[in-house]
Nucleic acid binder design. Structure first.
Lengths: 186, 186
DNA sequence: TTGAGTATATATCAGATCTATATATCCCGC
DNA sequence: GCGGGATATATAGATCTGATATATACTCAA
């Protein structure tokens, strides 16, 4: 899926500026499973206005820069629907954390332990955010998506906690000792 | 993390060609949480050879194209370790599926139902692959990473199955009817 | 048997996308 | 009163993906 489709999808929920679209994928409804940068959003909106998929009205603001508020057109809506037909591509998951864990034996054990602990903490914060998000009602599809996110994060936290004993420090006194990751079963 | 670090990480497990590195992220040990294309791997290897982070030996093959087998150097190993110090960036997750679910109300209900069913099936296949991967021992870090993947996929399948009743078709006889996604709780 | 499709293997280019930076104003806290 | 964050748009450069090209061999079905 490209930025164009993404922008059309967000505009389907109401008019927005490029800035607001970015906030929606960063903090709002689309958070945690969609990403896009200003560097792709702004040019996409400009081009889509040329193609009549969206309209743009400029709103002057005092003290703040002018806003360009975009609205999806009928043509844009049909483009969106057509882009969404067919089977969606498989989810993409990228994890530097798992990459580090796979290479744990070339890194200091205390670093691995710190990273591991930090990760659990970060996931707990993310979970709390999602749960507070679920409270604020939003709309049914949003409930479903937030629920999905909560299920995943909870599973990740659960796994990391039960595997924690697998993160071992070998021979505590050696300085050059490297960390080792092993499953709890071992 | 960039392709260079990724390549160094794979080469840390043994010499490999660009083709083999791609297979490692597509089907092998790094599967499901790392991605890279030939278009980035090959140039990265060439440049890293110039920078003495890897060495390259060419192996002529009969019937097949020549191989360029890369090995990580001491300098490469220290570059890798240095790239891996510090806190790894948060995981990235991208899901067209969830995007579609969020926009379910503008799409035909039967399409949503089909996509939903297909997704459960795809996840089951992925889970089976991962479990067979876990059997083949590999190395301790690999066990941990595969276990993480299994935990996540199982959670996703569980959530989709228990929320299935939330996927409703309103007013079955209407043709223009759109699908609606709701949580099981509703 | 022949042709399509898959696997091995490297390489490159166009296009899409990200990162970082620039510009401008205002509000908040210290 | 000054740095930092929020609001808001924009762009250049670096990076990466996706598609395509090249070349050979093997397998499977028509």
């Amino acid at each position: 899926m490209n930025v164009r489709t993404l922008c059309l999808g967000t505009l389907n929920f109401g008019d927005a500026t490029g800035y607001e679209i970015k906030k929606m994928v960063e903090e709002g409804m689309f958070n945690h499973f969609i990403e896009a940068s200003y560097g792709s959003i702004y040019p996409a909106l400009t081009r889509m206005a040329d193609d009549d998929l969206v309209t743009c009205r400029e709103e002057a603001q005092e003290g703040k820069p002018d806003k360009k508020v975009y609205s999806i057109t009928a043509k844009g809506r049909s483009e969106l629907a057509s882009a969404l037909q067919g089977t969606p591509k498989p989810d993409k998951f990228k994890s530097e954390f798992l990459f580090v864990m796979l290479l744990a034996d070339i890194l200091p054990a205390d670093h691995i332990a710190a990273v591991y602990g930090q990760r659990i903490e970060d996931l707990r914060i993310e979970l709390a955010q999602m749960k507070s998000c679920a409270d604020t009602g939003s709309h049914p599809g949003g409930q479903f998506v937030v629920g999905y996110g909560i299920a995943i994060i909870e599973a990740a936290i659960g796994y990391l906690e039960e595997s924690r004993i697998g993160i071992t420090t070998d021979r505590t006194t050696e300085t050059e000792t490297a960390g080792t990751v092993a499953t709890a079963a071992e």
